[in-house]
Design a protein around this nucleic acid. Sequence first.
DNA 1: TGCCAGGGGTTCA
DNA 2: TGAACCCCTGGC
Length: 290
Amino acid sequence: MEYIAKDNKIIFRNQSFNPKHIFECGQAFRWERNDDESYTNVAFGRVINVSKKDDIITLDNVNEEDFNNIWMDYFDLNRDYEAIKEKLSNNETMREAMDFGYGIRILNQDHFETIISFIISANNQIPRIKKSIDIISREYGQKIGEYRGKTYYSFPNFETLSKAKVEDMREICRVGFRDKRIVETSQMICSGEFHLEESKNYDSSKLYDELIKFPGVGPKVASCIMLFAYGKSETFPVDVWIKRVMESLYIGHETSKKNIGILAKDIFGDYGGFAQQYLFYYGRENKIGK
DNA sequence: TGCCAGGGGTTCA
DNA sequence: TGAACCCCTGGC
């Protein structure tokens, strides 16, 4: 991939990269939009700002070493999304969805942060999910530094959260009944009951079986973790939104979440994760089925 | 103003 | 299978 590195910026051209699509398609909770339409976040202990003008993408506050070691993988830049769209373009509905969210990419996010974030997401609303993750980072994370006048904090590691008080989770971080689930999950990783490092080499089936052992992780949350942190791109998480979209655009009547999963596997095969993101973004932004 | 439903699901009976 | 679950916001 060709890019220019200068002034602590990385600049490259990519037609399948749109910050709004990437950060608002439901996979990440910490990217915040600035007045200039750029997005800022802290991930892997670094503050980064992303902006787009025409097909030119600028990553600010990034040196070349971090770009190659961290952000290439994080933004899935080695993958050809135009080729994926080609594979998925055999039906009109999907073509429309891909047209709408043409710049979506599936991020490869930090494993632990993703596990906790999606435990928080259960039966919750996005503004509140974001707020809780933000408070957890301020309370338990490390101060990373200032960027454009704001202070940024990293997401805490599992050791720190394993020692957090359950009541603080609830009363300070406002996570509600998910309080115990967060602390207990962190403890299971800390104790080695779940091997975080090894889990990166599990196949999808083994990974799923291990993930649902965490309290607060069921089928949907496990799928999201697999897709958004472990790169299991065939995974098709079924939530209420994707259920509505599939029912109204593909099926024509109501059915179970399980059936939708089976059907999606049939239609999209190994590209399920990409299909899910295009449909989710398209469906939610246009309130399809609601 | 005040009440009430419902939310990117999971758990427990 | 179905109710309950924290908390917060939007709709009436």
